[in-house]
């Protein structure tokens, strides 16, 4: 763990693995350090914004170093089942790139449990880790102008469900009718950091 200054009101904790980010995020969410006002996990980092009137970078760093980065116990984390129809527009390209049949792709994708590592790119867009390395593929050379809401996609080490229609460069392998994000719902998200996810073929 290494803590870096991020301006005068935030610290960025560098970690080696996504599980450590989740572990530290869970530990800090349960027992926030004095003066911490927001925690934002990402791929290998956790941003901690703080109130300068209540703490300092040095004091916060001292408190952060005392926390565990061990992964949070699984049973403590919610599970969301996402029903999927594996009919994505890029299935043929993914099959060609991996040498798998389309049914193998569905089986490999649905055969694992995932964890939301972090959200970003767009509101409610959750990066899920745990993807079979065979399905680790680069983004499309040309991003689509519009990916529909509910598209299930892969890129790099992640899989995701597009929370709303948006431009996007991920490889589309299926779609779900489940609304993973709805601004009129409270809370709006189903897939927050640390949530476990299973894809169920339909």
């Amino acid at each position: 763990m290494r803590v870096r200054r991020y301006g005068s009101r935030a610290a960025l904790v560098d970690l080696d693995r996504p599980e450590q980010v989740l572990g530290l995020h869970a530990a800090l969410a349960e027992r926030p350090p004095a003066g911490a006002v927001e925690l934002v996990p990402a791929a290998r980092t956790l941003l901690v914004r703080f109130d300068r009137r209540q703490t300092s970078f040095e004091r916060l760093t001292g408190e952060l170093m005392r926390h565990s980065i061990a992964a949070a116990p699984e049973r403590a984390r919610p599970v969301v089942e996402v029903p999927v129809r594996y009919d994505g527009e890029d299935l043929a390209d993914v099959a060609a790139a991996t040498g798998l049949s389309t049914s193998d792709i569905a089986e490999r994708h649905a055969g694992r449990e995932y964890t939301v590592a972090f959200c970003g790119f767009a509101p409610g867009f959750a990066y899920l880790t745990g993807l079979d390395p065979v399905l680790h593929l680069p983004r499309r050379a040309t991003p689509r102008v519009r990916v529909p809401a509910g598209a299930v996609a892969v890129a790099g080490e992640y899989t995701a469900v597009y929370p709303h229609a948006s431009p996007g460069g991920w490889q589309l392998i299926g779609h779900t009718e489940l609304a993973v994000w709805d601004v009129d719902r409270d809370p709006p998200h189903l897939l927050g950091p640390g949530t476990r996810v299973r894809f169920v073929p339909r």
Partner: peptide, 10 residues
């Protein structure tokens, strides 16, 4: 750089 959180002013 793997994606990481940003703040206003960055």
């Amino acid at each position: 750089l793997p994606p990481e959180a940003c703040v206003p002013g960055a």
